[in-house]
Design a protein around this nucleic acid. Structure first.
Length: 592
RNA sequence: GGACCCGUAGCUCAACUGGAUAGAGCAUUAGACUACGGAUCUAAAGGUUGUGAGUUCGAAUCUCGCCGGGUUCACCA
């Protein structure tokens, strides 16, 4: 039981004992005491002054006295308005710290028995990954790690949107203008190669549509008149009919893309245990739709298309099968969900997908509910906000995107320049140096993306956004590296079961209190599926430590016991920083 | 137009889910001892939480109206 829970129950008992009224311990508010008041935790007793029929000061004094008599770790208390501020004893902090320092499993909560499948990344296979995918990957990876640390069994999966009109467009442009070129031949990364033809398609279609556009035809109509559009359409249909030649081209081009993706995943430390492919799920989805139709859950239009009516849910009618019998996006997702459920039988299926698809997932859930699927309500759409550029939205059709690989390269370069400027590469061999640039550059990027609540939009300015000072990844990494330097110098005997110190400096208390918050942060992060909780926590720990480091000597005190204690405190701090950063997929440097 | 989301310091974000005098970082200004690493630390300045009402001991947080911004409602994925 946590201190907070203990105090909640004790406060409920106090009210019962003093005023003969029963209250729910859960309803007792316990806060951390704000910095400008003395105390560690605060009990809010406003709700009980009516029950007590006394003024807040009297009520607070009575409850405070009761608590102080009850617990030896409460050294003192003071009452301000309706707040009872409790001050804990030195022994309490030392004992808590010792417990923490000697617990090898700290930060790994016991197994919950809950199984979760988490889908993330979800790229289309017609173009390279971009900034949006980066946010997706970082959020997904971090949420999975956080859930695991909370004791859940997490299976990370990916979904490739590998079929349909988009890849057909790349195929058509390649067919018409590549002369059989390949990534190997041109020296391009596979996904960039295919993406080039996707952008080219859009150029060509605009060119070819020009005559109709000049006649005043609407853009979408004009594009339908073009040769390249016809070819892309043809590919889509031929694909569904199993034309071997088309399938061959499709396989080849997708293969190029997967090779390229693999490199990017490795660069970013992103992995998953299973990949799903829409090309393997759409037929199952179609069957499910037809089954629903036969049960009169859905309805058919005269043209043969199949629809679901969700107007009673305040939504619209939604197409499930086109009039030509082919499936659409949502149908495929129905198949994916079914397949995934059969694979894992999870308690929860989390989808990390952008917030522009909130409506889509609402519909998906309702359709599966209509079909009576047991997993319908295990579906949870964990959405994240768009990443905006200073110029506005990214537009992949126009090639106006921040490319993931370019961005990574830029981060590594910035990290290198910065490190060299500060003269930190002295005594490092080139391998060590490059590893460091990677740790710092990727760390800065991950932290930048994760420190903001995932559901908020973020503005990404490539020139200014990713910094190395202040509330950043490298700031936290730096704190770690400095502690590491101390540990190297001090030697290994820094963790002892007992510390011969009697008084604690306020900075030491602050730090211990902060460290003890780790599991609380971990839980909040899991409950809200929000990695920014962990990011902000890690920053707070680093800041609290840096303050202590600046004001006090860690290992050069005249009293050797003080040195031992502070070095141990530093070591535990470093361990927690490492754990917290690890949850975000951020590595830690030995020196920087 | 229907549904949903957002508005906090010049900028980027917090606020323990209803608690005290709304906090950090960046940028600006002024400082930090031949102490363990200055990618650090200390301080100043910066606010009518878009706006108006309501709910109660107490509102950035909950409710309603208005103003401003966004997403979505495809036989695209």
């Amino acid at each position: 039981m946590s201190i907070e829970q203990t105090l909640q129950q004790a406060t409920a008992k106090a009210v019962q004992h003093l005023y003969q009224t029963e209250i729910d311990p859960q309803s007792v508010t316990i806060n951390q005491t704000p910095k400008n008041f003395t105390g560690n935790l605060t009990v809010v007793i406003f709700p009980y002054i009516k029950i007590a029929r006394k003024n807040p000061l009297q009520t607070g004094a009575e409850i405070g006295n009761y608590l102080k008599e009850q617990f030896s770790f409460i050294e003192d208390f003071n009452v301000v308005q309706g707040f009872v501020n409790l001050l804990f004893s030195n022994e309490f902090w030392l004992q808590q710290f010792t417990q923490l320092a000697n617990n090898p499993n700290f930060g790994q909560l016991p197994a919950s028995g809950k199984k979760i499948v988490l889908e993330y990344i979800g790229p289309n296979t017609n173009k390279p990954l971009h900034l949006g995918h980066i946010r997706n990957m970082f959020v997904g990876h971090a949420v999975a790690a956080i859930l695991q640390a909370n004791g859940h069994e997490v299976h990370k999966v990916n979904i490739f949107n590998d079929k349909g009109i988009n890849i057909s467009k790349s195929m058509a442009a390649w067919k018409l203008s590549a002369n059989g070129a390949t990534p190997q031949g041109t020296g391009m990364k596979g996904d960039h190669f295919v993406g080039y033809y996707y952008v080219l398609y859009n150029k060509l279609v605009t060119q070819q549509a020009a005559p109709w556009l000049q006649q005043g035809m609407e853009r979408t109509e004009a594009e339908k008149q073009t040769e390249i559009y016809a070819l892309a359409q043809d590919y889509t249909q031929q694909w569904e009919q199993g034309n071997p030649e088309v399938l061959q081209l499709w396989r080849t081009m997708n293969g190029w893309v997967y090779e390229g993706f693999k490199e990017t995943f490795e660069q970013l430390g992103i992995e998953y245990e299973k990949a799903y492919y829409e090309s393997e799920c759409y037929e199952l989805g179609k069957e499910m739709a037809l089954e629903g139709l036969s049960q009169n859950l859905f309805f058919k239009q005269p043209d043969g298309s199949v629809w679901v009516d969700l107007t009673d849910q305040n939504l619209d009618q939604k197409l499930l099968i086109r009039s030509d019998g082919t499936s659409v996006y949502i149908t495929q997702d129905m198949g994916v969900a079914e397949l995934r459920y059969n694979d894992y039988h999870p308690h929860q299926m989390i989808y990390v997908v952008g917030d522009e698809q909130i409506y889509h997932f609402k519909v998906l859930k309702l359709v599966l509910e209509k079909l009576g699927k047991p997993y319908a309500n295990t579906i949870y759409h964990l959405y994240y906000g768009m990443v905006d550029l200073p110029e506005g939205k990214m537009k992949s059709r126009e090639g106006k995107v921040v490319d993931a690989d370019d961005l990574v390269a830029e981060m590594l370069q910035t990290a290198e320049e910065h490190t060299k400027e500060l003269g930190k590469t002295e005594g490092m061999n080139p391998d060590e140096a490059h590893l460091l640039y990677r740790i710092l550059g990727i760390g800065a990027l991950k932290y930048f993306m994760l420190r903001v609540n995932a559901q908020k939009r973020i503005l990404f300015n490539p020139k200014e956004s990713v910094d190395f000072q202040g509330n950043t990844g490298p700031f936290i990494q730096y704190s770690y590296a400095r502690i590491n330097s101390i540990l190297r110098k001090f030697g290994q005997d820094y963790i002892l079961p007992h510390y011969q110190v009697e008084t604690l400096h306020p900075f030491e208390k602050d730090l211990i209190a902060e460290l003890l918050q780790y599991e609380q942060a971990l839980q909040t992060a899991a409950d809200t599926l929000d990695p920014s909780v962990v990011a902000n926590y890690a920053f707070a720990v680093a800041k609290t430590y840096n303050k202590l480091y600046a004001e006090l000597s860690v290992m050069n005190n005249s009293n050797p016991h003080t040195n031992t204690f502070r070095v141990a405190l530093s070591a535990v701090t470093a361990g927690i920083i490492k754990k917290a950063l690890h949850l975000m997929g951020i590595e830690v440097p030995q020196r920087m």
